[in-house]
Computed example of a mutant assay.
Amino acid sequence: MLVGYMRVSKADGSQSTDLQSDALLVAGVESDQLYEDQASGKKDDRPQLAACLKALREGDTLLVWKLDRLGRDLRHLVNTVHDLTDRGIGLKVLTGEGAAIDTTTASGKLVFGIFAALAEFERALISERTVAGLAAARARGRTGGRPFKMTPAKIRLAMAAMGQKETKVGALCVELGITRQTLYRHVSPTGELRPDGQRLLSKK
């Protein structure tokens, strides 16, 4: 079965999903299989996306008009598609930069593999820059202050590091200058943001 997901950024009626719905209907999605959210792509609270993902079954294909309608960012997108793939569900993008993605085909899987590699590269860069920044701060003697304070930079490093199987949590806490309790209050063992972490990053 084909299932379509649509999203517009504003909920005040100034944006419409007509273009997206027309394209999805032409692609073969039935009107009763369309899900729509009116929210920023960066927001976690997208109830129709959650309902759409829950409704999908093995053998189904999720269709989106453009790639940016689905994911908050590259990492979220990659994680979402990996989850769909593990459940035997395909993803097809109709237009835009991700139009070559169709995980029901071999070539489409190859294209998505490139996106996944870019996400991994992005995480590695964040980790590398953050470690370098912390080392530079230590070299300048900036090690005082509140010893267990979590910062946006530390959260990003923790997210990147916790997503790697080889990460030793104790060593990571020493590197960041925080306790395990502080780490797990902000980031889950798999590298996902927890509410405290989300609140801290949103204050930027």
Score class of each variant (00 low, 15 high):
Asp86Asn: 07
Thr95Tyr: 08
Gly90Glu: 13
Leu94Cys: 14
Ala39Arg: 10
Leu74Tyr: 08
Gln33Ser: 13
Ala39Glu: 14
Asp60Glu: 09
Arg46Cys: 09
Gln48Cys: 03
Val93Tyr: 05
Thr61Gln: 13
Val78Phe: 08
Cys52Ser: 09
Arg75His: 11
Glu36Trp: 00
Ile101Val: 14
Ala55Ser: 15
Ala99Glu: 14
His76Lys: 06
Leu77Ala: 01
Trp65Arg: 03
Asn79Met: 13
Leu49Arg: 08
Asp60Arg: 07
Asp68Ala: 04
Ala99Cys: 12
Val64Leu: 06
Asp44Phe: 14
Arg46Val: 03
Gln33Glu: 12
Arg46Leu: 07
Cys52Pro: 03
Leu63Arg: 00
Gln48Phe: 04
Glu58Tyr: 03
Ala39Phe: 10
Thr95Leu: 06
Ser31Thr: 11
Glu30Asn: 11
Asp86Lys: 14
Ala51Val: 01
Gly59Ala: 04
Tyr35Trp: 15
Val29Ile: 08
Lys92Leu: 08
Thr95Ser: 15
Leu53Met: 12
Leu91Gln: 11
Val64Trp: 09
Ser31Val: 11
Leu70Gly: 04
Thr85Asp: 15
Leu94Pro: 13
Ala51Cys: 02
Asp32Trp: 04
Ser31Phe: 08
Arg57Asn: 14
Asp45Met: 12
Asp86Leu: 11
Leu62Pro: 03
Thr85Val: 04
Asn79Gly: 12
Arg69Ile: 06
Gly71His: 10
Glu30Ile: 00
Pro47Tyr: 06
Ile101Thr: 09
Lys42Ala: 15
Ala51Phe: 02
Thr80Asn: 07
Leu67Lys: 07
Leu67His: 02
Glu97Tyr: 00
Gln38Val: 02
Ala99Val: 10
Gly59Val: 05
His82Ala: 05
Ile89Pro: 03
Val29Glu: 00
Gly96Asp: 06
Ala55Thr: 12
Arg46Trp: 09
Val64Asp: 10
Lys66Cys: 09
Asp44Glu: 13
Thr80Val: 08
Gln48Tyr: 04
Arg87Gln: 11
Asp68Leu: 03
Val93Met: 10
Arg75Leu: 13
Asp37Asn: 11
Gly71Ala: 15
Val29Lys: 05
Gly59Thr: 07
Gln38Gly: 07
Leu49Ala: 02
Thr95Glu: 14
Gly96Ala: 10
Ile89Met: 06
Leu67Glu: 10
Gly59Gln: 10
Thr80Phe: 02
Leu77Asn: 00
Glu97Trp: 01
His82Trp: 03
Ile89Arg: 00
His76Trp: 05
Asp32Ala: 04
Ser40Cys: 07
Thr61Val: 13
Ala51Asn: 13
Arg69Gly: 05
Ile101Gln: 08
Leu63Thr: 01
Arg57Tyr: 01
Cys52Ala: 15
Val78Gln: 03
His76Ile: 02
Thr80Pro: 06
Ile101Leu: 11
Glu30Ser: 14
Gln33Ile: 01
Lys42Phe: 12
Asp45Phe: 11
Lys43Phe: 01
Ser40Phe: 00
Val64Ala: 10
Gly88Lys: 08
Glu30Asp: 12
Leu67Phe: 00
Ser31Met: 03
Asp37Arg: 07
Leu63Phe: 11
Val29Arg: 08
Leu74Asp: 08
Leu49Pro: 05
Val78Ala: 09
His82Thr: 02
Ser31Arg: 15
Arg57Gly: 06
Gly41Tyr: 03
Asp86Glu: 12
Arg46Ser: 07
His76Ala: 09
Leu56Arg: 02
Arg69Cys: 06
Gly71Asp: 13
Glu58Ile: 05
Thr61Asn: 04
Leu62Glu: 08
Leu84Asn: 13
Asp45Arg: 13
Gly98Val: 01
Arg75Met: 10
His76Ser: 09
His82Tyr: 00
Leu70His: 03
